[in-house]
């Protein structure tokens, strides 16, 4: 197709998406970066104040941003490890010849389709029901909130990662494993030297997805603990939300936190991508 005819049709092909993309992403992003250097309550009364917003929340003792950061970082590390190890182990077991694998896959994957808020309230009922026997509840201490969130996240995401690992394992050519067996490799050696290197692309994807999902967690946090006790189980996304909508005059600070949050997410995504891609085997 000649470029000239195509270009005559450019408005039809590009305009609707680009108008929406500008409204939904480009304009809010640019305005967001600008507003992080401003003091404002609505967009129209913004006053430029330099980097004041970026300093204010580090020095304010009532702001728990740093605590949220550690809480989120620890949560991310724990969930990424648990979800990927368990997800991979289940995938290994379910790719063996076992009766009922299809049913198990269906069941394990299901929680992933339910929305974060609904999941949060389901687990609140269950965990508070257990803790009630000990005269406690999820709001008793941040440790309970943390463990609750980890359990919830595992329940939601293990099935998802398992599905990706299963497709990775099934793509390994059978001859490769046959050859290893003939050479006298033990099952452990096959796993370490054949299976894991061959599913490295799946591992890249799964660690990426779990990393960003855990780091950006919002709905589940809002529903399960809502930051209780006194903001101690507040993760970064919820902390930013509460700074915007829970504190008058702090909108600029909320936006500054959001910029930092964005930079952290971007850094994690890029570093993780670089690290695991370099371990992948060329096929």
């Amino acid at each position: 197709m000649s470029n000239r005819t195509m270009k005559r049709y450019a408005p039809i092909f590009l305009l609707p998406t680009m108008v929406a993309f500008t409204i939904g992403f480009i304009a809010p992003f640019i305005l967001g970066v600008y507003l992080s250097f401003c003091e404002f309550t609505t967009v129209t009364d913004a006053k430029f104040v330099g980097i004041k917003n970026y300093i204010r929340f580090w020095t304010d003792p009532s702001d728990v941003f740093l605590h949220s950061l550690w809480f989120t970082a620890l949560f991310t590390i724990v969930t990424v490890l648990l979800i990927n190890v368990i997800g991979f182990a289940v995938a290994l077991a379910l790719t063996k010849k076992i009766r009922g694998t299809n049913l198990f896959r269906t069941v394990f994957f299901m929680p992933n389709l339910i929305g974060g808020l609904v999941l949060g309230y389901i687990w609140q009922l269950l965990l508070n029901g257990i803790l009630y026997n000990f005269q406690r509840n999820l709001k008793f201490s941040e440790v309970y909130g943390f463990i609750g969130l980890v359990i919830l996240m595992c329940w939601q995401q293990i099935g998802y990662m398992m599905i990706i690992y299963i497709s990775g394992i099934q793509n390994i050519p059978g001859e490769l494993i046959e050859a290893a067996k003939i050479d006298g490799a033990t099952p452990k050696q096959i796993l370490k030297n054949v299976t894991i290197p061959m599913v490295m692309p799946s591992i890249t994807i799964c660690t990426f997805l779990t990393l960003t999902n855990s780091f950006k967690l919002f709905d589940q946090n809002l529903a399960l603990t809502d930051g209780d006790p006194s903001k101690m189980s507040e993760m970064l996304a919820l902390n930013i939300y509460n700074t915007f909508y829970g504190r008058n005059g702090w909108e600029g600070v909320g936006q500054a936190k959001a910029v930092i949050f964005f930079l952290m997410v971007a850094a994690i995504a890029l570093i993780q991508n670089y690290l695991t891609r370099s371990k992948e085997v060329q096929q």
Binding site: F25, G32, K216, E251
Partner: peptide
């Protein structure tokens, strides 16, 4: 790679 919180308010 931009999280929703970044553009939420604007």
């Amino acid at each position: 790679i931009v999280p929703f919180q970044m553009v939420m308010f604007t």
